[in-house]
Simulated assay, not measured.
Amino acid sequence: MLSTGNMQQVVKHSMAYGYIISQPFSFYVDSYPMLQNEVFQNAEMIVAYGEHNEAVRVLQDKLNFLSYYDKELDGEFGIFTEFALKKFQIEHNLSITGKADEETINTLVNDERRKYLDPLKDIDRTYYLGEQGEGIKVIQKALYYFGYYKGEIDGIFGPNTNKALMYYQQDNGLEVKQEINQQTVQTLQTESETVDNAIQPAQTEAANQEKKDVPAKSEEKVQVPTKDVAQTFNTSELIKSAKTHIGTSYVWGGTSPSGFDCSGYIQYVFRQFDVSLPRTVSDIWNMTKQVDQPSIGDFVFFETYKRGPSHMGIYLGNKQFIHVGVSTGVAISNLDSSYWSQRYLGAKRVVIQK
Score class of each variant (00 low, 15 high):
residue 26 S to H: 04
residue 117 L to W: 01
residue 229 V to D: 08
residue 116 Y to I: 07
residue 133 G to K: 05
residue 248 T to H: 04
residue 105 I to E: 04
residue 209 Q to A: 00
residue 330 V to P: 00
residue 94 L to W: 12
residue 307 R to Q: 04
residue 272 Q to R: 09
residue 243 K to N: 09
residue 43 A to W: 13
residue 177 K to E: 08
residue 354 K to V: 10
residue 166 M to C: 03
residue 218 S to I: 00
residue 121 K to L: 05
residue 166 M to P: 02
residue 305 Y to W: 13
residue 223 Q to E: 07
residue 204 T to Y: 00
residue 40 F to L: 15
residue 29 V to R: 07
residue 303 E to A: 03
residue 89 Q to Y: 15
residue 279 R to V: 06
residue 338 S to M: 14
residue 204 T to I: 01
residue 74 D to W: 06
residue 223 Q to F: 15
residue 92 H to W: 12
residue 319 K to T: 03
residue 116 Y to M: 09
residue 50 G to N: 05
residue 100 A to Y: 15
residue 333 S to D: 10
residue 123 I to R: 03
residue 10 V to Q: 14
residue 190 T to W: 13
residue 226 T to Q: 12
residue 48 A to Y: 12
residue 208 N to E: 01
residue 75 G to F: 07
residue 354 K to D: 07
residue 115 K to C: 08
residue 191 E to C: 02
residue 231 Q to K: 08
residue 71 K to T: 05
residue 99 K to S: 12
residue 4 T to H: 04
residue 72 E to D: 04
residue 114 R to H: 14
residue 59 L to T: 15
residue 181 N to W: 03
residue 118 D to L: 12
residue 129 L to H: 14
residue 75 G to V: 02
residue 174 L to A: 01
residue 141 K to L: 03
residue 137 K to Q: 06
residue 273 F to C: 07
residue 40 F to V: 12
residue 303 E to H: 03
residue 174 L to I: 01
residue 135 G to H: 04
residue 212 K to T: 03
residue 67 S to N: 14
residue 77 F to Q: 03
residue 340 W to Q: 10
residue 118 D to T: 09
residue 15 M to V: 00
residue 77 F to M: 06
residue 201 P to W: 10
residue 74 D to G: 05
residue 206 A to P: 01
residue 224 V to N: 08
residue 338 S to W: 05
residue 318 N to D: 04
residue 190 T to Q: 08
residue 175 E to K: 09
residue 285 W to Y: 11
residue 7 M to K: 09
residue 95 S to R: 09
residue 353 Q to T: 13
residue 270 F to Y: 09
residue 283 D to V: 11
residue 334 N to Q: 11
residue 256 S to C: 05
residue 224 V to D: 06
residue 43 A to V: 09
residue 51 E to Y: 10
residue 252 W to F: 13
residue 353 Q to A: 13
residue 205 E to C: 02
residue 341 S to G: 12
residue 153 I to S: 01
residue 144 Y to R: 07
residue 177 K to W: 11
residue 343 R to K: 08
residue 61 D to I: 14
residue 183 Q to P: 02
residue 88 F to A: 03
residue 17 Y to V: 00
residue 196 D to E: 02
residue 161 T to Q: 01
residue 342 Q to T: 12
residue 107 T to Y: 12
residue 94 L to T: 06
residue 244 T to V: 06
residue 84 A to E: 10
residue 48 A to V: 13
residue 66 L to W: 14
residue 108 L to W: 02
